[in-house]
């Protein structure tokens, strides 16, 4: 049985502006872009902590006072917050927590995640900064 197509099918391609067609897609794209700021911020942050760890406390503080770094932090803050928001929004849906036979609802999982975040943050501050 021949399967050749006597007439062409019409193929459509996504244009460069596809993510503007639907507000969900636009929000998704913004979330993807925030990753850039989150990554850059994380790198700078790790570098600062490593300076602290190696005892170069002054150069670490100098770096933190650098106007360029402050400006970057101001810009990165909303992006990071947005990223964190989407992360916590998704995590409750993607990884519900199982306790015995009941499965958590998204908001319950979200709550557990936030509580965990606070505990871990406190521990990190205790161990690394306030020791």
């Amino acid at each position: 049985m021949s399967k050749e197509k006597p007439f062409p099918e019409y193929r459509r391609k996504l244009g460069p502006g596809w993510w503007l067609s639907n507000s969900h897609f636009t929000r998704y794209m913004i979330r993807e872009w925030t990753s850039f700021f989150v990554a850059l911020f994380s790198l700078i942050y790790i570098y600062e902590i490593s300076l602290f760890a190696s005892g170069a406390k002054d150069s670490a503080l100098a770096l933190m006072r650098n106007p360029g770094i402050i400006a970057f932090n101001i810009v990165a803050l909303p992006f990071t917050l947005y990223h964190a928001f989407t992360w916590f929004y998704l995590i409750g849906k993607v990884q519900p927590i199982k306790l015995g036979k009941t499965t958590s609802k998204p908001w319950q999982a979200l709550l557990v995640n936030i509580v965990l975040l606070l505990i871990i943050s406190y521990a990190v501050i205790q161990i690394l900064v306030l020791r």
Partner: peptide, 15 residues
């Protein structure tokens, strides 16, 4: 990459 639109449009409540 977690766009999530698949679960929004599903007419049968599949995620």
């Amino acid at each position: 990459t977690l766009v999530g639109e698949c679960s929004v449009v599903c007419p049968k409540g599949v995620d």
